[in-house]
Design a protein around this nucleic acid. Structure first.
Lengths: 114, 114
DNA sequence: TTGCAATATATAAAAAACTTATATATAATG
DNA sequence: CATTATATATAAGTTTTTTATATATTGCAA
C-alpha cells in the first residue's frame, strides 16, 4: 500500500487517465480499477474521489450521465473535449515529474555538477 | 518546471535522500542542488523547505550544526540514525509508487483484469 | 433471519502540506 | 547605487486529502 502522501497531486491525473483509457466510469469503479491495475498498491478513498469528480464536473472537464442498476444509482463521468486536453497535459507533466525525480534520487553516475 | 501539485508528498523524500547522498547540507543548498540535478525542472520554495527541516529536526530525524560564512549564518542539517532509516523507507515507498502509478497510467499490453 | 460484505454516493470537520508574501541581512556585481 | 545571489524565517491563506459519518440496496453465509 502506497503512502498516501505520494498520491497527493496525482489523484487527478489517475482519474482523468482512466476515463480516457476506459471510457465513462463511475466513482466506485474508478477506485476498483485503480486498485486492480496497481496490484492493490493504490487505494483511493471515497472522501477524495467524489469531491474531485464534482470539482472536475464544475470545471467542465467532465460531464455526467446517471443510470439505475439494481435500484442503485450510478453516475458515469465522461471527459469533455476540455477534459481530453487536460488529460494529455497532466500525463505529460506526470512523466516529466517521474523523470525529474529519478534524476534527483538516482543521479546518473559520472555526472556531477559540484 | 514541474507542477507543484506533484511535488507535494515527495518533498520530504527528496530532502532526506540528498542528505544521505551528499552529507550535511543547509536549506539553501538543498534547493540549489535539487534544481541542478533535475535540470531546472524541480524548484523547491523556501516557504516549504525551511518548515520541513524544522519539522524533521523536531522529529529527531535531523540534527543541526551552525556555521558562520562571510558573516552569514548557515545551518547544516545531518541525518540521525533514525533519519537514515527513514530515508531508506521513503525511497522504497517512492520507487514502489512510481512503479504502481506507471502500471495505472500505462498498463502493460495484453494484461486485463476486466 | 440476521448480520456482514460488496456496491454506490455524499458531505462535513479536521488535519496536513504547500504557496505566497513578507521580513531581515550580507556580499558581490554591474 | 541598484540588483542579484546568498541564507534563513514565519504568518496567512489555500488546497487537498483524511477521517468519520450517513444513506440505501443486494447477495451471501451462518
Amino acid at each position: 500500500m502506497i503512502s498516501s502522501d505520494l498520491l497527493k497531486g496525482s489523484l487527478k491525473t489517475i482519474v482523468l487517465k482512466l476515463l480516457k483509457e476506459e471510457g465513462p466510469m463511475h466513482g466506485y469503479a474508478i477506485t476498483r480499477k485503480t486498485e486492480e491495475l496497481s496490484g492493490g498498491k493504490i487505494k483511493l478513498t471515497y472522501g477524495a474521489i467524489y469531491p474531485l469528480l464534482h470539482k472536475l464536473k464544475n470545471e467542465k472537464m467532465l460531464v455526467t450521465a446517471s443510470e439505475i442498476i439494481n435500484n442503485r444509482v450510478r453516475i458515469y463521468y465522461a471527459l469533455t473535449p476540455k477534459g481530453h486536453s487536460l488529460v494529455d497535459e497532466k500525463i505529460k507533466e506526470l512523466k516529466e515529474f517521474i523523470d525529474s525525480i529519478q534524476l534527483v534520487i538516482d543521479p546518473p553516475k559520472g555526472i556531477s555538477y559540484a
